[in-house]
């Protein structure tokens, strides 16, 4: 992308749906696969999609009866543009007081995982 454009939260939700399919999809499909946190209706989705087309993030194929949408900018490209890398440990550690997790993220090297597996095995045999 030459001219940098940014996605709002709602627009990003739409893009996330499009990024997760390999083929062009209809607006109905997008609507069904959007997070339920935001109260999406078809009308607002259509106008957001039109805006995304305008911005050049999405292409709209009007050859069929139902418009088909496909992402033009890849997830990785946009992430790179936003400077959004994978969440670092630092970020995730700042959550630990307020969320519950399966395990707390403090580890781990390859040797550690191997060591833990052996430990689990030894418990299994011992028990």
């Amino acid at each position: 992308m030459k001219n940098k454009k940014w996605l709002g939260d709602a627009e990003l939700e739409i893009m996330m749906v499009l990024w997760r399919v390999d083929e062009p999809v209809t607006s109905k499909y997008v609507l069904e696969n959007l997070p339920k946190r935001r109260a999406w209706v078809l009308a607002s989705l259509m106008s957001s999609l039109a805006k995304l087309c305008e911005k050049g993030f999405v292409s709209c194929d009007r050859t069929y009866r139902l418009n088909q949408y496909v992402a033009l900018v890849s997830e990785d490209d946009y992430k790179a543009q936003e400077g959004e890398k994978v969440l670092s440990n630092l970020y995730e550690n700042s959550l630990h007081n307020f969320v519950t997790t399966l395990y707390s993220k403090k580890v781990i090297g390859d040797t550690d995982i191997e060591e833990l597996r052996q430990f689990l095995d030894s418990l299994n045999k011992g028990g």
């Binding site: 440990n89 580890v107 781990i108 090297g109 995982i113």
Partner: peptide, 19 residues
Amino acid sequence: IGQQKMRGNVFTTNFYAGT
């Protein structure tokens, strides 16, 4: 834990307190 390691999201430091 292992999957996360493979995704490269974790600093690969040995952290014995962790283990």
